[in-house]
């Protein structure tokens, strides 16, 4: 798919600006998002190609503006809904209840 993810050779995407040091994960939510991949993959919820394709189907602006693990979150949600592991509104409904408890 010739989508926005096919970045090789594009101009003007800004400086690389590599930091001298950086943590493996910048936030706790990144740790959890990263780790969720393994059991979901292991349970057969999706394969690696489907996972990448879900990221490649993000809207270009969301893709370019979202951080790396936001891409992963998007892929989890997309695939879990498409494959029937959760309903289209199930996570949003769950979050609404979650907020009430907080």
């Amino acid at each position: 798919m010739n989508g926005v993810h096919d970045l090789g050779g594009m101009h003007g995407l800004g400086p690389i600006a590599p930091p001298a040091q950086e943590p493996v994960f910048a936030h706790e939510w990144e740790r959890r998002a990263f780790a969720m991949f393994v059991p979901l993959f292991g349970a057969g919820c999706f394969n690696v190609d489907e996972f990448r394709h879900a990221i490649e189907r993000m809207t270009p602006t969301h893709y370019l503006e979202g951080s790396y693990y936001e891409h992963w979150l998007h892929a989890f949600e997309t695939l879990l809904v498409e494959k029937g592991y959760m309903g289209p509104n199930e996570l949003d409904d769950y979050i609404a209840k979650f907020k009430e408890k907080m």
Binding site: R32, A35, M36, V38, P39, L91, I95
Partner: peptide, 25 residues
């Protein structure tokens, strides 16, 4: 919040186990 909720929801569904996530991290 979204990641936290997703982890909790998928744990309830039996698809993931939070202690296994700790180990992977």
């Amino acid at each position: 919040l979204r990641v936290k909720a997703l982890e909790s929801l998928l744990t309830e569904k039996g698809l993931i186990d939070p202690s296994a996530l700790d180990e992977l991290v």
